[in-house]
Write a protein that binds this DNA or RNA. Structure first.
Length: 773
DNA sequence: GCCG
DNA sequence: CAGTACG
DNA sequence: CGGCCGTTACTG
């Protein structure tokens, strides 16, 4: 019933599209008012004329940015927004019982039967009023673009149900993207196509007039290649709009990072061989000509120059809009994080359609004709010298040979060589990394090169904010690290835990081709470096760092002088270099000794234990983790002595420098995060104290020893066994709802003994040094 | 991404 | 509440 | 197809 209704609407909509093509203006609004799902107001918003604040090339403040999210990159007067809310409500009000069933992005059917269904750009034009009311249930990518195949196998069907990002994060909203090469046969590209769709854009297969971006997905493609392709495709030379030619990476990842549409003409986004910007010589306010010459694609520039002015006058007014000029004389290209607000392309191509309609239609035909061609020919490139740039992201702080007895772990292949004959015969135990011991990897891992490349991809996905893929890569890398033989074939790789067919194929390809040039673009990128800089500040994560960058800050000094900082962040900046340094094992011990002796003075029954990577045998650590406990003492007692006596004492003695995060509640807080410094040193160290009652020591030891992957793994295992594990204990009979919502506390099973927790969970005991996943 |  | 940090 | 650690703890 609902489906039928939807189908009708879809059909009707298509009809409208077709008829609209003949030149009639859109008039489908009323019919849809009551049925379409309620899209957020922006869907029906006219693209606001951007008024770029002359003040800041740095872009809006984070706050402004946030505000603008809801209004497609443009700050809206509040009245405007509230009005749209009203619209939304009224649209849902009467006779809309079906509305709920039609989530904006959850359509079941294909909206159009033909992948080439071209929708007149009028459809998304927004200048005139009636559109204000149109509630269109088709997501933009279906309405305007072509639906790529699903991300599964090569024979996948069209991905009909791509989950879009929340509107606020759709940084590519309403963009029309043409890829080069422009097909979805290769999985990486298909993934990228999906990504831009999730970000609110549409992907088109054929050339059309409303394309806003051409994205090249490999950095070795050149400007002239693209140009050749497009001209061959008949790109009309009278095309006068600005079409930006960018490298997907790093453009899209960085747009995601900064939560906004970045200036595509920044140097780092340009395709190799693209005309270099000379904007520095150009007047900022009237740089229509120069602005065209940068990131924007020019086909037959000279001819275009001749025709540009002519068609421009009666077509897109965009060029005169200051926001289109992403230049700042004082900043070289590539260094500014300028925001190109929405619709920098100009949203009324229809006004100028007539001007180049003939050329265009021909171009479309030609492009269609060649659309199926294998543009994919991978020009092999030599082992791109992906030198060991930061090959050590996870700098193993573990010593090669932990002091404890070291089992020969050369037989570490998780799947026993015997029973795994079946491809899917992985032992259940192998799905938990906590089950199999893993010490420090040998320094010369036979798979180091593969790991290095996978690590780069891992970082890439991290940039894309794809946390789960990142997680999967981490686990796969961890598995690979444990291998003592070189994994060379996909078959070989696929039997390893956390390495599925797709990663296995990638591994094989990496071994064979030794290729991956992904990081090349980002590692030299100043923005990326600034991001890393800011991420190193204690108290700042991706969100904050991105906001800072987006606000135009580039140095720590910028932050100190201009940014609003939390107290932790201030300390993090002041002692940035201190906290970035590794702490030698001996110094970790010295800090521990200081605490222990102070504690002994206060009350000999207290004890302190150094945890963290130190307990895992690391030769140096990033910080100092110490558990403080006392037999038969409550949290309150511990808290009282530590917070009222120990901390003040060590602070006045000069050992403790400051606090970063400590329990606010006076009696049951269990953690103290702060900074310490040895008397004969000037380097401040991060110090974490954990107050633990004796009965929770086992769980606390487990937690504070780590590492993090190990902890997550063993906690997941507990969860799967109907238990729950946290830093306080192991609980059983935990009832969980459908989404792991914990419904009851469960019964405490064990908290005192670390070993017993292992036993109860059925995990073979692992020495601290073997808990490196 | 992997896994069940 | 989101963001960050901890293993 | 949905989950992927912790009803972790702390800050603002």
């Amino acid at each position: 019933m609902l489906d039928d209704a939807l189908r009708e609407k879809t059909a009707y909509f298509e009809q409208q599209e077709l008829s609209d093509k003949d030149g009639g203006d859109m008039s489908l609004g009323d019919s849809y008012l009551n049925i379409g799902p309620v899209l957020a107001d922006s869907e029906a918003m006219p693209p606001p004329k951007l008024v770029r604040k002359p003040s800041s090339f740095l872009g809006p403040t984070p706050k402004e940015l946030q505000m603008s999210f809801g209004a497609r990159g443009v700050k809206q007067p509040s009245s405007f927004r509230s009005e749209s809310s009203k619209l939304e409500r009224s649209a849902t009000a009467p006779g809309t019982t079906t509305t709920k069933s039609f989530p904006a992005t959850g359509l079941r059917q294909r909206p159009t039967s033909s992948p080439q269904a071209k929708v007149p750009e009028r459809l998304k034009r927004t200048t005139s009023l009636p559109d204000m009311k149109v509630k269109n249930e088709l997501p933009f990518y279906k309405r305007v673009g072509v639906i790529p195949r699903e991300l599964k196998k090569s024979n996948a069907k069209p991905a009909d149900n791509i989950k879009l990002e929340p509107e606020g994060r759709q940084v590519l909203r309403d963009k029309v993207v043409y890829f080069y090469p422009n097909n979805d046969t290769s999985m990486p590209r298909r993934m990228r196509i999906h990504k831009i769709i999730q970000l609110g854009a549409a992907w088109v297969r054929a050339w059309r007039e409303d394309i806003t971006h051409i994205m090249v997905d490999e950095s070795y493609h050149t400007y002239s290649q693209v140009l050749r392709h497009l001209n061959k495709a008949g790109l009309p030379c009278r095309e006068q709009r600005r079409i930006f030619l960018v490298k997907f990476d790093p453009y899209v990842p960085q747009c995601i990072q900064f939560g906004t549409l970045l200036d595509p003409s920044a140097g780092r986004f340009l395709v190799k061989g693209a005309p270099i910007s000379n904007r520095t010589a150009v007047d900022t306010d009237h740089a229509s000509q120069s602005s065209e010459s940068q990131g924007s694609l020019q086909v037959k520039p000279s001819l275009r120059q001749l025709t540009a002015h002519d068609s421009q006058t009666h077509s897109t007014p965009t060029e005169n809009s200051p926001q289109n000029v992403n230049s700042d004389p004082s900043h070289p290209p590539g260094s500014s994080q300028e925001i190109v607000k929405d619709s920098f392309i100009g949203d009324e191509p229809n006004e100028s359609t007539d001007a180049y309609n003939d050329d265009l239609s021909q171009a479309i035909q030609e492009t269609k004709a060649i659309a199926h061609l294998p543009l994919d020919e991978e020009e092999e490139e030599g082992p791109t010298s992906s030198i060991d740039h930061d090959s050590d992201s996870g700098t193993d702080d573990e010593i090669p040979e932990p002091p404890s007895k070291r089992l020969k772990l050369s037989t570490s292949t998780p799947a026993p060589p015997k029973g795994k004959s079946k491809g899917k015969g992985k032992a259940p135990s192998s799905t938990f990394q906590c089950m199999n011991p893993s010490g420090a990897a040998s320094s010369a891992n036979p798979n180091s090169r593969t790991i290095e490349i996978l690590d780069q991809m891992c970082k890439y996905y991290d940039q894309m904010q794809d946390q789960w893929r990142t997680f999967a890569y981490r686990k796969a890398i961890s598995t690979l690290r444990k291998q003592d033989t070189k994994i060379t074939t996909a078959k070989e790789a696929a039997v390893l835990p956390f390495i599925g067919q797709r990663l296995a194929d990638k591994i094989e390809e990496i071994v064979l081709t030794d290729r991956l040039r992904r990081l090349d673009s980002t590692r030299d990128d100043p923005t990326d470096q600034v991001l890393r800089l800011f991420l190193g500040v204690y108290g700042a994560g991706l969100a904050q760092a991105s906001k800072w960058i987006q606000a135009g800050y580039r140095t720590l000094d910028d932050l100190t002088t201009k940014a609003k900082l939390t107290s932790s962040q201030k300390i993090g900046i002041e002692h940035y270099s201190d906290f970035a340094q590794r702490i030698p094992r001996t110094e970790v011990e010295a800090h521990g000794t200081t605490i222990k002796s102070a504690l002994r003075t206060l009350d000999p029954t207290f004890s302190a234990t150094i945890m963290g990577s130190y307990r895992r045998g690391a030769k140096d650590s990033g910080d100092i983790d110490i558990i403080i406990t006392k037999p038969s003492a409550s949290i309150a007692q511990l808290h009282s002595l530590v917070f009222k006596t120990l901390i003040p004492s060590l602070t006045s003695s000069g050992f403790l420098k400051c606090k970063l995060a400590t329990s606010s509640r006076t009696d049951d807080g269990t953690k103290w995060h702060g900074v310490s410094c040895l008397p004969d040193s000037t380097t401040w160290r991060r110090l974490d104290l954990l107050l633990v009652p004796e009965e929770e020591m086992g769980a606390a030891l487990l937690y504070f020893t780590g590492n993090d992957i190990f902890n997550r793994s063993i906690r997941l295992l507990a969860s799967k066994k109907g238990m729950r594990l946290n830093q306080r204990g192991l609980y059983r009979d935990v009832v969980r709802g459908r989404n792991r919502e914990k419904l009851n506390e469960g019964t405490l099973v064990e908290g005192r003994s670390e070993r017993k927790i292992f036993e109860i969970l059925g995990v073979p005991w692992r020495e601290p040094g073997e808990r490196i996943c």
